[in-house]
């Protein structure tokens, strides 16, 4: 990783959403959605972000592409800190960063043709004329495995897989360097999911794209990612190369998560690590290590002291007192 260009740097990023209450709607408390994450992403790699619902993985993705404002910390992209950018420059920055959402149908206008929806990008970000735009969109459609005739179709005429292809075409339109995929294949059936993942990998090689791949599905993340960040309740639990995280997980949460996945082998009977109870609410943030309320190896000090983010072996970080 050392000889690669650093593309994105996330430093001690926090995002707290206020819960307002009372007559004056003053913040009463905060939901700590993202609570101190450090992440460096290099050009051309895929970093997977996994965790269960409420762990802050989607909020982190939205912070990176500038859809949410930071509470604390810095995010720099290509060496420039985006918190300090004026709006005019921010537009340029955003064209370099794109996002693919879980349900592209929700973000498409049902009464607008797919071709027109895709062209809009170029109306805003370029000065191409109508004919150029149409040609460009048609080549994009082909790039993602759709046909030219799809240009004149409406969103409801597309299947789930095809809609996701439209979402990918839209993300690709401005030649971005980083694409945040937020549960991009989660709503798809497995056979279609496999097609889309293969397409994403093909496009990555072709255009030297960098992906931030957010998903709750550990199998999908392993298939897609070079490195993986495991999040729990807004905090980073473990980070490392894919094969290290999956073959030698260190954090008790990563271990529990991996042991909980049902394997496609009826004879696989390994002992499952059972986690007690449910995820605590992010508005009632536990003191000390966020995982201590459910951790099978928690000690007294885990409830008091926040574990530090340590590099236990090369490129393998973990936040746990007991590792």
């Amino acid at each position: 990783m050392e000889n690669q260009t650093q593309l994105l740097e996330v430093k001690n990023v926090k995002k707290h959403f206020p819960i307002k209450g009372g007559l004056l709607q003053r913040p009463k408390s905060f939901v700590k959605a993202v609570n101190g994450v450090d992440l460096t992403v290099y050009e051309g790699e895929t970093v997977g972000i996994v965790g269960e619902s409420g762990c802050g993985k989607s909020t982190l993705g939205r912070l990176v592409i500038g859809l949410e404002k930071l509470t604390e910390g810095t995010i720099s992209f290509g060496g420039e800190s985006i918190g300090d950018l004026p709006d005019r420059k921010l537009k340029k920055y955003k064209s370099n960063l794109q996002m693919i959402f879980q349900d592209p149908f929700a973000s498409l206008n049902p009464r607008q043709k797919i071709g027109d929806a895709l062209e809009e990008v170029f109306v805003i970000h370029s000065n191409m004329n109508k004919a150029e735009r149409k040609a460009k969109v048609q080549s994009l459609l082909q790039e993602v495995g759709l046909k030219e005739e799809h240009y004149d179709r409406f969103p409801h005429e597309f299947s789930g897989g095809q809609r996701q292809r439209v979402g990918i075409a839209r993300a690709l339109a401005l030649n971005p360097s980083l694409i945040v995929c937020d549960e991009a294949v989660s709503a798809l059936d497995v056979s279609v999911q496999a097609q889309i993942m293969k397409l994403l990998k093909k496009l990555q090689t072709k255009y030297n794209l960098t992906y931030l791949f957010i998903s709750h599905d550990l199998g999908v993340v392993r298939y897609m990612s070079d490195r993986v960040l495991v999040m729990y309740l807004g905090a980073q639990a473990e980070m490392g190369d894919s094969h290290k995280i999956y073959n030698n997980p260190l954090h008790p949460y990563t271990k529990a998560l991996l042991s909980a996945i049902p394997r496609t082998n009826p004879k696989h009977k390994s002992e499952r690590i059972k986690l007690k109870g449910d995820l605590p609410s992010a508005s009632d943030y536990p003191k000390g290590c966020p995982f201590h309320t459910r951790c099978p190896i928690a000690q007294a000090h885990c409830a008091e002291v926040v574990p530090e983010w340590r590099e236990v072996e090369e490129n393998h970080f973990v936040a746990c007192h007991e590792v």
Partner: peptide, 24 residues
């Protein structure tokens, strides 16, 4: 077979998915 081959394996390091073409 296609359905089984489309599921990425959590326990496998390098893998190639055999994709079923088309959709339902």
């Amino acid at each position: 077979k296609g359905l089984l081959d489309s599921v990425p394996d959590v326990d496998g390091d390098v893998q190639d998915l055999n994709v079923i073409q088309g959709s339902m």
